[in-house]
Design a protein around this nucleic acid. Structure first.
Length: 344
DNA sequence: AACACGGGGGC
DNA sequence: GCCCCAGTGTT
């Protein structure tokens, strides 16, 4: 790479971003610290998640698990509880395992080297770069969706961001404008991408580098980034039985091999002899990123203690009630169902 | 390299 | 209805 051996002619763009960031950085809780634990948690929480969606989860999580020792010592189900409603639940499972990695492999001291941070469960190239640059003066670009968008527009570059080569490609491209303060540069790119250089209707008139932006000068901002991959959504039918008696109902914990990893759910089936207790059916539509769910929930009201006891005995289900269910993490549609049932 | 994984919000 | 979001792990 020839350009790495001389001062980039685009370096002034990165410096402009730094100046802009100094004045316009969003006032967020994790901006007031360089504690790698807090930066790590925030990076995981905000993977594929907007600030407005995850901010309360982040604050609650830090309040309950203020440091890596507390998190490592916690029960996995409680970690999942604090992740309730956020989605991508393997993040919660991995964050818990990674905390135990820090305790076991690094004596409770968060690793400072990029390669070591990368070894933590759930931490990939982006997150390792973000933590090392923000907390330890690391020099790796934290290439995410914002980087793809900003850089592709800045250079009117039509490299396909769908492919697996995009990360390396835009990592190199970012070095053309990357100043020495990589931590602030990475955060400046995030803020610019989310506040100014937005996917739709970007605020180019407020952009600090619009005069450097090739796509803008060409009037082709909307054509970037180029993304060819198209995913089709499929339909998925689920059936649950909400089996209850005297305010108590039956649940079980999901496996970690499909959606809603290790979250709690209702029984997916009942013995034939209990079908006579079915008193209602509710159909719930629910959209995931690539799936349209149609969830049938049969309400089963058990009317005798004998039937209730035999049902529990013959199956491995747990008994809970609305009050205790607040201590467990349910998939969003089931959470909503429980709330509605409570009000009814 | 392709795919799976949640939920919310913009348009 | 489609696309996007402070991506990572698995196959």
């Amino acid at each position: 790479m020839e350009h790495q051996n001389r001062i980039s002619e685009f370096l002034h763009v990165g410096n402009k971003l730094l100046s802009w960031y100094k004045k316009n950085a969003r006032d967020l809780p994790f901006r007031q610290t360089r504690d790698p634990y807090k930066i790590w948690i925030c990076e995981i929480v905000f993977q594929q998640t907007r600030i407005s969606q995850g901010l309360n989860h982040y604050n609650n999580f830090i309040s309950r698990f203020p440091d890596v020792q507390t998190l490592a010592a916690a029960d996995e189900n409680e970690v999942l509880l604090y992740w309730k409603g956020l989605g991508y639940y393997s993040r919660a499972i991995n964050i818990h395992k990674a905390a135990q990695q820090v305790m076991d492999d690094y004596h409770g001291i968060f690793p400072s080297e990029y390669e070591e941070i990368m070894k933590l469960k759930g931490v990939g190239k982006y997150t390792a770069a973000a933590i090392s640059s923000i907390c330890f003066n690391g020099k790796m670009p934290a290439v995410d969706g914002n980087f793809y968008r900003v850089l592709s527009r800045l250079f009117a570059d039509d490299y396909d961001i769908s492919g697996s080569g995009a990360f390396a490609y835009f990592s190199e491209l970012s070095k053309l404008i990357m100043p020495d303060n990589v931590g602030d540069f990475n955060q400046a790119m995030m803020d610019l991408g989310s506040e100014i250089c937005k996917p739709k209707n970007p605020l180019c008139h407020s952009c600090p580098v619009s005069e450097d932006c090739l796509a803008y000068s060409l009037g082709k901002v909307s054509e970037f980034p180029v993304k060819t991959k198209k995913v089709k959504t499929e339909n998925l039918q689920l059936r649950y039985y909400f089996v209850h008696r005297n305010g108590h109902f039956l649940i079980q914990q999901r496996k970690d091999d499909f959606i809603w990893k290790k979250l709690f759910e209702f029984p997916p089936e009942i013995p034939e002899e209990f079908e006579k207790y079915i008193v209602g059916l509710q159909i719930i539509g629910h959209k995931l990123t690539h799936k349209n769910l149609c969830i049938e929930i049969y309400e089963v009201e058990i009317t005798s203690d004998e039937a209730w006891d035999s049902f529990i005995a013959e199956n491995g289900y747990m008994v809970t009630d609305v009050e205790a269910s607040h201590e467990k993490s349910f998939p969003k549609p089931l959470e909503t169902y429980i709330q509605k049932w409570l009000r009814a």
